[in-house]
């Protein structure tokens, strides 16, 4: 569990920043900040950040997690699940 948190730590801030920026563009459409747009953006932005950070920029970091028993598939699955849950929470608020 701690290893997953360490993995996700690198993704959460950039994903949140980009998602909030996209959510703020909702102000132009609706006149108010939209958590729904932010949540939907997070659903797509987080996997994109995962791809850029771990598959392109720091691909050797995967070996750190492989040595802790986490495969690339399981790390991708966790990213998709966590971003899905975050999206649902933000939509339902």
């Amino acid at each position: 569990m701690q290893s997953l948190l360490i993995f996700y730590k690198k993704l959460i801030i950039p994903s949140a920043i980009f998602s909030i920026m996209i959510g703020m563009t909702g102000i132009m459409a609706t006149g108010t900040f939209s958590l729904k747009y932010t949540g939907l953006a997070y659903l797509f932005i987080c996997p994109m950040v995962h791809f850029f950070v771990y598959d392109v920029r720091y691909s050797n970091d995967y070996y750190f997690y492989y040595n802790l028993g986490l495969s690339r598939k399981s790390l991708w699955a966790s990213t998709l699940v966590i971003s899905g849950i975050a999206c649902l929470i933000l939509i339902l608020i």
Partner: peptide, 16 residues
């Protein structure tokens, strides 16, 4: 896991 560990030649420690 806990059976075989591997250290690649280019290193693997996350920076953060």
């Amino acid at each position: 896991r806990n059976l075989i560990n591997y250290l690649p030649q280019d290193g693997f420690l996350p920076n953060h």
